[in-house]
Design a protein around this nucleic acid. Structure first.
Lengths: 142, 142
DNA sequence: ATGCGTATTGCGAATCGTTCGCAATTAACC
DNA sequence: GGTTAATTGCGAACGATTCGCAATACGCAT
């Protein structure tokens, strides 16, 4: 079977080593439900990878394109997640605090619109929406 | 003639005083081309308002809804601007570094899409796009 | 398997943006 | 003009992130 992303080869491709710490950080990131702060990642690593090293690993993953960093709404700590193949965006429910990912073509539509109407070629599209998720605005949907 | 926003009455409405510092911060914000960091605002005030006070003023303006805070892409400092009546979004050119505002119905489309397809009622929509603006991707447009 | 050379780690100190505590000041109302 | 509570300015405190550097571990060749 094929793992979504082969960390070792990705690192090698960019001239970096596969270390146990990087592997652990990657595992945590892959296994996490949503976005994690560096601190959360550090706490979840099997051997308690040093926070500074976690930052370095996450920064590296982001640089080589296998992770994505984002700074949601009001929060002041950055969060990371595995880079999904396609654009996606976050919606933050301000009632329950949940952060959900949304894929779909919305971001693609945004790109198209910007390109057509404004001649702007979007490299990254970061969309953070806060509001009431269906679960919170309509309790019957719970 | 009618000023876009009457600072004094806005403050009063929410039980706050109009101080010279707040007025200066407001002037800077209104007169600024784009988003400013707190530090930039402080530097631009006529009498050199203290940075902490600038933060307090900006926070207050944001709370009462007459300013808007945002944290663009890679930058790690928050920026503020006068709250425009409608949703808008920022596009950051990674070549020239310019930050442009865009109004239009794009954000409204996003709201509609989220509401219709996901039952999510968006309160705030923050969209930050980075890429190449037309000026940079096509030098002839300069 | 072993050793080498370099990338990487861990630690603590440094940095940056932002907030806090508190004494001195000042706006709003009489 | 006087009273009083809100606000300012300052410097210290804070949390997130980065940096410097000695110790360590990976990848490669042997």
């Amino acid at each position: 079977m094929k793992e979504s992303i082969d960390l070792k080869s990705q690192l090698r491709q960019h001239g970096h080593k596969l270390t146990t710490q990087r592997a652990e950080v990657w595992e945590v990131l892959k296994g996490a439900p949503g976005h994690l702060t560096a601190e959360q990642v550090a706490a979840d690593t099997a051997s308690g990878v040093n926070l500074a090293s976690v930052y370095r690993a996450l920064g590296l993953f982001t640089d080589i394109g296998i992770a994505r960093e984002s700074r949601l709404g009001n929060d002041d700590a950055a969060r990371w997640e595995v880079a999904h193949p396609d654009d996606e965006f976050h919606i933050v429910c301000r009632s329950c605090g949940r952060v959900e990912h949304h894929g779909g073509d919305l971001v693609q539509q945004i790109r198209t619109h910007l390109s057509n109407s404004h001649g702007f070629e979007a490299a990254t599209v970061e969309l953070a929406v806060s509001g009431e998720c269906s679960r919170c605005s309509d309790p019957s949907a719970a």
